[in-house]
Design a protein around this nucleic acid. Structure first.
Lengths: 156, 156
DNA sequence: GTGATATAGGACTGAAATGGTTCTCTTTTA
DNA sequence: TAAAAGAGAACCATTTCAGTCCTATATCAC
């Protein structure tokens, strides 16, 4: 339903790998690719993106590589997605005026923003450190449904 | 960040149109297209999909059209998205085994499902009737993050 | 210093998904 | 019986995505 690109998926997987290791652990693209079973160029691309968005710190040169820029619990899934999928333009029509023929008459527009915010808040509530939990299913059930962000509203 | 297709966007817009009108109001594709400022064939396609998923009731023949299958407050945004974007396969690798090289060694997999569930729950909490509110921004801010009748769950 | 290693950054390409159209068939009302 | 309207499937152009490749720059080791 909600489409997450493969790149984002991989990105989270790679960052999770860092999060599992001791603080400041450094890995280069080649080793990470091997560990993740992904092609090296693709992993390199993702790591570059993450570094550019300050989720990873890059170390160039021989014996270089990448390490986490922050503690795992300080990095939210929302940030990762934002880093890999751009400035976040949830609905096409939010791209710019003119594209959408009905900007003026469309009453749903403002509501979409609301929806997006709800989703975003839900994602902000999940941190990388939580992703390292082998089996998240063990977390309290309440976490799954309400979440810190939102819940079933009144039936009008 | 999270991509919603245009079709889904339009679909919500169209359903919102129904929700604003008295119960059982019927519209045909042509009129709705005109009201929404969208091409008729496209609107027709969307309406068909929504009818197939039992969100709309179709009335064939001359003087036919569509009407809401349920009360607006009984239709969630999650359902609409599900109807227009298919069975919901959030992450590619959930499509099937074999596609993903690292199924066994990927510890993030189960966590993704968790993330998806959180997002899904958030969307289930928003109903069509809420989308008819002219300006949702006017709602109390607390509504956005917690809501009046359900308490924000614990963070972790 | 020089060479090897590793990231930075951007261009490019094949494949898949999207959005939109068109056509034929069936149903229903006048 | 004819016209209106939905059902359903096939089809096409465009865009997006995933993945690759190439050149430039930085850093470490000798």
């Amino acid at each position: 339903m909600i489409r997450m690109t493969k790149l984002t998926d991989y990105g989270i997987m790679l960052l999770t790998h860092f999060a599992r290791q001791p603080d400041g652990s450094m890995y280069n693209a080649r080793d990470l690719a091997a560990a993740a079973g992904l092609p090296v160029p693709t992993v390199g691309k993702i790591l570059k993106m993450l570094a550019r968005e300050d989720l990873l710190i890059s170390h160039r040169g021989s014996k270089g590589g990448y390490s986490l820029a922050r503690q795992p619990h300080e990095i939210s899934v929302a940030e990762i997605i934002g880093a890999l999928e751009g400035p976040v333009g949830l609905t096409e029509c939010s791209a710019g005026p003119g594209t959408c023929d009905q900007e003026s008459r469309c009453p749903t527009r403002s509501n979409w923003n609301r929806i997006n915010r709800v989703v975003l808040e839900a994602l902000k509530g999940i941190t990388l450190s939580e992703m390292t939990t082998e089996d998240l299913r063990a977390l309290p059930a309440a976490r799954l449904r309400g979440g810190p962000e939102r819940q079933p509203a009144q039936k009008s």
